[in-house]
Design a binder for these strands. Structure first.
Lengths: 340, 340
DNA sequence: CTGAAAGCGCTTACAG
DNA sequence: CTGAAAGCGCTTACAG
């Protein structure tokens, strides 16, 4: 019943064997230590009988391993990070790892302090979608030989494993599609973020504009704002730039605010204004008109992230750090295709 | 630099004081143990100088506390549990707790084994949205004096803390609204789930039908299915029940499948068919027509959940278990209001 | 093949 | 006011 009390010591005493013998048997090292089958059976039977559960804390203290991974993301409640968190946890579980998470909302101080906390609790590895200026804190972690996989946004000049998508290329492709559809004045609405993924998306847009000698028009808004503010700022932006006839939104929630803005302004999609969003959302499939979007391969990203990390943790891989880029899919729907 | 190495022992030796003295000072118990201010300053200064970090594993082994909470939900990537997880984590963090999560996808075996695992790693408490038949496993946990808060769905006949919403009442209210709008044949589309929240929603619907002497029509589909299957099953259901002129969807993702179904069938909302969803979604605000929905108070639910749990963990509250019901808001939009 | 013992880094009665 | 010591429950060289 109350299995909390029984320890290896109790078992050893009760069975008149040494603690080490019990420990070896429990950990499947009986053979390696040439413990007799009989002894092993006896111990195993007793363990089963009393329903013995090892104390993982003690084990962690002795081995230095906690079988836990720290997951630090922007927002676990969001439609990009949430599904990623789900898949990562399900894969980690299969390998015997638990996930401890924290949402940073892109606040560097919060991220650094939670990184410290997780490190002090001896997680075996980290998966991080870092806010800006985390380089130093992460370097320290790596210096202490704790494996780290960075994803979604890269930290320049840092030698870590990284998994992300081809932001620049796919945005360029999307913008070229708008140009082919004869949209003349394409705006880019994003965040005032120096993060790599945001910079790359902007570059993709600028590159497409440059190629066709179009003048870029960019709106960048602060990250820590709310939906209403985004919406009203977008309305203001579109009113003061009436020539704009298409918008690329650099995140899905900006696009959602954009759709509200466009609805309030009474504009028609795609006749008055063409729309493309980065990242998928249920809304985009079902909206009418449906919204053209860049869809990240969540499954593949998650699989790559956890695989790289577990290779380092379990197999102690010391292979050179990898930068893995998994291409996104550009899904053309109605919002970016002129009817005429 | 390498703070991993320095232990309380090292500090004690270096400063020529007892380990216990250092420990007391670190834990702010200097005064209680009447340690001289001078000594305290000396130790504190040295700790700061070398950047000492306590080993939380050792601390946990000694105290039996891990400062971690196990969060077991249906799906952390979903638009109900994701935001809840975000808010719970942010509140827990403020009180010094880490959250370890796992998604069950409503699979009882998985849920039981992760419950065991988390318990073996000595989490200080649990927050659980349980699949069916978890009573026994949860009872065991409670029996071992680990605090548990159940949310979203109740386990009948169990004496635990519970936080949820007024499913029955608010669904009844929503269905009455449909009847007032002169919808004649209201169907209820849900999951074949014996979980309390699903039963309550069904009861709310049946109650409303009974009051007005309407014949209920119910479609229940398996939980572990995918969007496409839901959509095609809903199409089939609506085709074989052509009299239906309104549908109440018991979850938001069923409603999303329902909207796809309705679009494929070419029906108009709300003229051909009225729609109400349980749980909010970005899509529902922005869809045209906008979708009437029952909105759960996520903030309040999260706050209540974590507060109850921390009261038990930190303050050791042994107050009788509470069942807290926080009412949802019925938000009427276009999809349930007849135009004529 | 098996056992005695040290160690992981803390906490906390207990004694003085 | 402070120190020596046992204990939390494991693991793992080491010795026989």
């Amino acid at each position: 019943m109350s299995n909390k009390k029984t320890s290896i010591n109790d078992i050893a005493k009760h069975l008149n064997v040494a603690k080490s013998t019990v420990s070896f048997i429990i950990n499947g090292k009986a053979e390696a230590h040439r413990i007799s089958k009989k002894q092993e059976q006896r111990v195993l039977a007793y363990i089963k009988e009393i329903g013995y559960k090892p104390n993982y804390i003690a084990k962690s203290l002795a081995t230095g391993k906690t079988n836990s991974i720290g997951l630090i993301v922007e927002n676990i409640g969001d439609s990009f990070f949430g599904p990623i968190a789900l898949m990562i946890e399900e894969r980690a579980k299969k390998s015997g790892y638990r996930i401890i998470y924290s949402s940073t909302r892109n606040n560097t101080d919060d991220a650094v302090s939670v990184l410290q906390l997780f490190k002090d609790t001896h997680v075996d590895g980290f998966i991080i979608a870092p806010p800006v200026q985390m380089e130093e804190a992460i370097t320290e972690v790596i210096h202490d030989k704790v494996p780290v996989v960075i994803f979604d946004r890269m930290l320049e000049g840092m030698d870590t494993d990284y998994v992300g998508t081809n932001n620049r290329e796919v945005v360029e492709e999307a913008c070229e599609h708008l140009l082919e559809q004869k949209f003349k004045n394409i705006a880019f609405i994003s965040l005032t973020s120096p993060q790599s993924q945001m910079r790359e998306r902007l570059e993709g847009y600028l590159q497409a504009m440059r190629k066709k000698e179009q003048t870029p028009t960019v709106l960048q808004m602060p990250y820590d704002s709310d939906r209403e503010s985004y919406t009203s700022e977008i309305i203001h932006f579109l009113q003061t730039n009436p020539a704009i006839d298409a918008v690329f939104f650099a995140t899905n929630y900006l696009c959602i605010s954009g759709l509200e803005a466009i609805r309030e302004m009474g504009k028609k999609i795609p006749d008055d204004i063409g729309i493309i969003a980065f990242d998928e959302h249920d809304l985009f499939r079902l909206f009418s008109p449906s919204i053209t979007a860049i869809v990240q391969p969540l499954e593949q990203l998650s699989t790559a992230i956890i695989k790289i990390l577990l290779d380092r943790i379990d197999k102690g891989s010391i292979a050179p750090h990898r930068h893995i880029t998994i291409p996104s899919t550009f899904v053309i729907r109605e919002s970016s295709v002129k009817k005429s």
